[in-house]
Design a protein around this nucleic acid. Sequence first.
DNA 1: TATTTTCCTTCTGGTATGATAGGTAATAGA
DNA 2: TCTATTACCTATCATACCAGAAGGAAAATA
Lengths: 143, 143
Amino acid sequence: MLISTKGRYALRVLVDMAERQAEGYIPLKEIAERQEISEKYLESIVKELVKNEVVTGVRGKGGGYRLRKTPEQINVGEVLRYMEGSLSPVACLEDGAAPCERSARCRTLEFWHGLDEAIRSYTSGYTLADLVQTGQPGNDYVI
Amino acid sequence: MLISTKGRYALRVLVDMAERQAEGYIPLKEIAERQEISEKYLESIVKELVKNEVVTGVRGKGGGYRLRKTPEQINVGEVLRYMEGSLSPVACLEDGAAPCERSARCRTLEFWHGLDEAIRSYTSGYTLADLVQTGQPGNDYVI
DNA sequence: TATTTTCCTTCTGGTATGATAGGTAATAGA
DNA sequence: TCTATTACCTATCATACCAGAAGGAAAATA
């Protein structure tokens, strides 16, 4: 499993926010109800989105969360990487992974690199706007 | 992490066997030493390969394991699916997963389907022969 | 001041991962 | 027939991650 509920829920939350951009700040409680996800669990997810400057939160009455950029500026691959830490298919390609001392003679490394690149180029071909509008990528990425 | 050590080690074991096809049956102990992987752990991995008819084992002196098909006939994606159970990036696309009752209005489903397909088409574009020879895919798959 | 909301820290039950341990069954060769 | 070798089988274990739940503190509004 490449993507856990963290990544999946994060996208659903962002789509929800994008569809209600005009309404200003939206309480997490509302999003949790609409998306049928535990509000407490969503807290930990949104926290990560705040930390990475994808959304902003405002406390108190009338507060809530809203997108910090336009949906067109929010890249899906980037968001998933925030949530999952990494989208690398294997441990040896993860950021900050100790370089494998077998890599020079590893016959599978190139295969993994290719898979990593396939995932990277697919996911970074989508923005939040693509998800909201049609569910189709808006750029020229072709599978 | 899409691929655990099970899938990674399985490929290394298979490449090792492919490179020594002419030598007949190869004891797991040798493979474990060459690949620097715990023999006991490899047992559980090879067991799965036997179960899925990728390799055959013969007991006793002079015994060991060998490929059951030619490297050209062994598909990398298939092997990884045996080892990992599934290569689906998200739980909702896994084989036998309960169909999500939100799927009709899910704005992210198509994105996940595309990612699933990207992974599937990349991994199934490689055979064991490709890993052994050059580390490059032998078919016309283009990223 | 009361209410609403984010924000922060801690805890928990379940499951998967990456092994290790110890044995049984089959086979070949001396 | 005995012994060494090898695959095969079952059980156990430490650790980490997943998916939340709980309880409160801080800020903002009315």
